[in-house]
Design a protein around this nucleic acid. Sequence first.
DNA 1: ATGGGTCCT
DNA 2: AGGACCC
Length: 618
Amino acid sequence: MSTFGLKKDQPSSTEQHPTRIIIALDLDAFYVAASRKRDPSLNGLPVAIKQKTICATTSYEARAKGVQKLMRIRDAVAKCPELIFVDGEDLSYFRKISTEIFKIVSSMVRDGLVEKLGMDELFCDVTSMVEDRYNEEIAGICPPVKPFGNVLPQRTKHRLEQKKGDLDEFDPLTRKLFIASNLAQTIRERVAEEVGLTSSAGIATSKCLAKLIGNLHKPNQQTVLAPCDPAFATQDTQELIDPFPIRKVNGFGSVTTARMCEVASSTTGVPENTVTPESMTILVARTLFDHTALSEMFGERIATRLHALLHGIDDEPVIKAPDFPAQISIEDSYFGLPFEKVPEQFVKLGDSLLRRLELELMSHPDPRQESEEEKVRKQEAEAEMVEVPLDIFGNPRSTWLRYPLSLRLTTRQGYTNRISRQTRMPVEIFDISVPRIERAKVLMHSCEALFRAVIQFEGNKGMGIHLINLAAIDLSVHRPNQSIGGFFKQPVQARTPVVESRQIIEEPIPETNQIDMAFLMELPEDVRREVAQEYGIELPTEANQSAGSQYEPLSQSSILSTQSSASTMLCSHCGLSMSSWLQHDHERWPDTGLPHKHKDEDMDDLDWDDEDDDVMSI
DNA sequence: ATGGGTCCT
DNA sequence: AGGACCC
């Protein structure tokens, strides 16, 4: 580091921010606890949350019998035959509980300075709140507080035991951490009262330290790291974290850890016994790797971060969770799905994705579900006499608050890396007057185009598809108004009745009806059942089916598409015969039938009839 | 392994 | 678009 004309005692970059006070909150066995809230008969029993073939989370009763997190179902049953399995693949309930908790904690922390890490962890920056309370202590407005819960390091514990009643003799930082430990307890109590879930917390001067020490005392407990003597603070903290394997520290992932173990094995000359991740503690890592070594292994930027972490230093700020996530995605894994079965899954996943987009990106006229942004919007509307969209009954109507501009498909063949491709989100999915399954079909067509691009790039590895992920990304406040092109040129006629009159537009969202049946009946039975169940559609019996013709022919079955995914058709431009699910891309990319490498310049020039704005604007 | 997410390159 | 990280 060059001083470059600076005076020596000027603040360095690490001293620029004032010392922070951070609370790391971690819900205890979150999936289990949420499942028990929904079904109290699970209380007190050994429970495992099942996702595919593994136990994603286990209850403390199950852990007592040796059923650890991420264990295979078979091994778990062997350890604990009476283990109860709860399906944990549908995350919607967990998401709901997680949001409730986040809102409560955000309301208790000044400026809502709360960061979310996954569904069950939160970081709160309570520096300024604690500062105020500390100043009141100094002013004699309120008495100094004792720390709540477990206290580290030992030096502080001993001093507390010796100097009862002399709390004001502790240094300012220590007293602030004591205050924060009481705040953490208050937060945990509120969450327990209002949601019914217990949590654990760590209180320290950084996210990393708070999390590390919060894990030391786990169910329903908390720990504060308050080094009482500034002369020993660095040493006490270092000694405390030195025995932790680096894997437990937030910036050290599996790849970094593996690399460090590898290099450690070769340089220390232990060819037989390679250094294991558990034995790669902070102390070992700090002894073996200086900044230069780390820099050679991982590059300057990452090295600086890792080096600081090994010394107990972590400047990562608490970043307030945004009102909307950066992406919303759904995924499913398979044992090796043959390519022909992939489009069906696109319909299923597309349908689920649309449900989530509607749930998380639209206003909900029911005030009990109203988001903060909606309330603000309403207040603004009232103040400025701006129109709030109303339905025919004069009630507030659902509208999109954000529009994902892009759709990304990620797949994995076998156990190789993930491959992803993205395209413009078809604007048709935002027209909620169209039944969801119709919009799911639109998504399916986009996905098929992306899928073919993936296969062209990757080839068929002969093992089928093991993972499909659909993500809605690039969230925008503005409704995109460009149609994705060719696919909807023909169906415009089919849609005409919808836009004939404004009054028709104002009608309530149509129920799923027989329009969907023909498409539904085309799907393989298992997929059909799942989709039908989601929509509450009664599937016809075999007898009914063979009786036949009660459903419209497929060519008229959809208001969006005039062909089935299974039929062949002729291209309206060149007359080429092709499977109809290829037509979309064929018309969009006439030369190859595949997406171009660069932006779809050819598409932007096409000026398709675009009545969508009329349909969708309110 | 899951079914999600984040940010950086 | 992929890779690392997080839960």
